[in-house]
Design a protein around this nucleic acid. Structure first.
Lengths: 208, 208
DNA sequence: CCCCGTAACGGATAGCTATCCGTTTCCGTC
DNA sequence: GACGGAAACGGATAGCTATCCGTTACGGGG
C-alpha cells in the first residue's frame, strides 16, 4: 500500500494491465467509445449511458465495448478520469493549503473541502457509477490515491492512531449517494457539509 | 423528523402505505415470498436472490412479486427487518450503555460499536441490498431510525454543531461496501473498526 | 346473499448486463 | 513481404429487471 498501482478503473487510456501497449484498432475503438459515451451523457444524462447504447451509437459490437471497459461503472470512471487527474494534481503538487507546504491538519481540512466540491461538481456521473457498482469505488485508482493521501496526512496529525482506517472513515461521508441525499433531498449546501467535516476533524486535532 | 414514519422499506409485513389493511390473498403471498426468499438466500447466497427466482420458486407471477415488494432491494430489506427490529429495541429501550440511562457520549460510542457488529453480522445481505440500490439506504426506515437516534445523542454531546449532518457522517463509515472492503479485502477486524470509530468520536467529546 | 368496485394476479414484453466463441485483424519476426 | 500467434472483434445468447394490462378474486355495502 504505497503508490497507487495499476488497478480497477485506473487506465487513463493507455494500455491494458498486461505488459505490451494497446493495439492500434483497440486504441481507436477506446477513443470512439469514450467520445460516444460523453455525447450520450451530455445529451441524455448518465442514466442513459448503457453499454448497448454505446455499441449502437458507435457501430462497435457490444462484446468489444465490454472488452475495452469491463462494465458500465468502469466506463463512467473513465469519463470522470480527466477532472480526477486535475484534482489529484491539485492536492499532490498544487499550491497550499491543498498542496504541500501547508501544515498537515490544514491540508487535510482543505482536502476534504475540495473533495466535497469535487463530488458535488460531478454528482450525477458519480452517482451513476456508484449505482452501477457500489464496491467498485474501493478498487478504483482514484480512491486508492485519495486514501493514500489522507493516510499520510492523518499519520502526521495523529501518529498513534490507525491512520489507514481513519482515512477510510474520513472519506466515507463523501460517497456520492450520501452527498446526493443531503444536497438534493435534504436541501443541504456544500458549505454546510464542509462545516460538518470540520467538526469531524476536531477530534484528530488534539492528541488524547 | 421525529419518530420514523412509514417509508421506503419500512413495511414489517402489515399493509401497503395506504389506509386499509392488506387483503388476505396479498398477505398470504407476502408471507410465501418472504419464506422463499429466505430459503434461496440460505441455500444459494444473496446473489441468487432474484425476483424471477422467487416467482419461480413460489409459483407466484413475477408481476405479483414486484407488486408486494417494489424491487430486489426492498425484498432484501424485508429479510433484514427482523434482526433490525431487535437492534432498534436494543438501542432505544435496552440496557445501558446502549440504551437509556447512560451518558450520551458513552451511548453514542456503544451504538457505533453495536452498529459495526450488526453490519458485520449480516454483511452479505446488506451488501446485496446496497448493490441492488445504493441510495435506497437513505430512504429506508432503518436508516431513518438510526439517524434520528444518533442525531439526538450528538445534539446532547455537542449542541453547537449541526447534529443532523454530523449524524449522517458518523453513519457513513458503516456502509456495507466499505465494511466489506475492510474486513474481507483489507483483513481488518471488527475491533479495529470499533477503535477507529472511537478516534472519530474524540472530536465530539471536547467542545472547542 | 349477491353485487360490484377495487385490489391483486400473472404472463408477456422491452431493454439491459455480461459472457461465449467462431471469425477477423494486427504486427513482430523471419 | 509473407507467416503465425496473440489480440481484438462482434453478434448471438442466457438471465435479469421492471412495467404493462387484460383477467381474476376478494370482501364490504345493500
Amino acid at each position: 500500500m504505497d503508490a497507487p498501482q495499476p488497478q480497477h478503473g485506473d487506465r487513463p487510456g493507455r494500455g491494458p494491465r498486461t505488459g505490451r501497449a494497446e493495439r492500434a484498432d483497440a486504441a481507436g475503438n477506446r477513443r470512439r467509445i469514450l467520445e460516444a459515451a460523453a455525447r450520450i451523457v451530455a445529451e441524455k444524462g448518465p442514466d442513459a449511458l448503457t453499454m448497448n447504447a454505446v455499441a449502437h451509437e458507435t457501430g462497435i459490437g457490444v462484446g468489444t465495448v465490454y472488452r475495452r471497459f469491463g462494465d458500465v461503472a468502469q466506463l463512467l470512471f473513465a469519463l470522470l478520469d480527466e477532472r480526477e487527474k486535475r484534482f489529484q494534481e491539485a492536492f499532490m503538487t498544487g499550491p497550499p493549503p491543498l498542496g504541500p507546504d501547508a501544515p498537515p491538519l490544514e491540508r487535510l481540512r482543505a482536502f476534504l473541502h475540495a473533495l466535497a466540491d469535487r463530488v458535488t461538481d460531478q454528482l450525477d456521473l458519480m452517482l451513476a457509477a456508484e449505482t452501477a457498482a457500489p464496491s467498485a469505488r474501493y478498487s478504483s485508482g482514484a480512491y486508492a490515491t485519495m486514501h493514500t493521501h489522507v493516510t499520510v496526512l492523518v499519520t502526521r496529525v495523529r501518529p498513534e492512531g490507525d491512520a489507514a482506517l481513519l482515512a477510510h472513515m474520513l472519506l466515507a461521508p463523501f460517497v456520492p449517494s450520501l452527498t446526493h441525499h443531503l444536497t438534493r433531498d435534504g436541501g443541504r449546501t456544500v458549505d454546510e457539509i464542509k462545516a460538518a467535516a470540520d467538526d469531524l476533524l476536531l477530534g484528530l486535532a488534539r492528541p488524547r
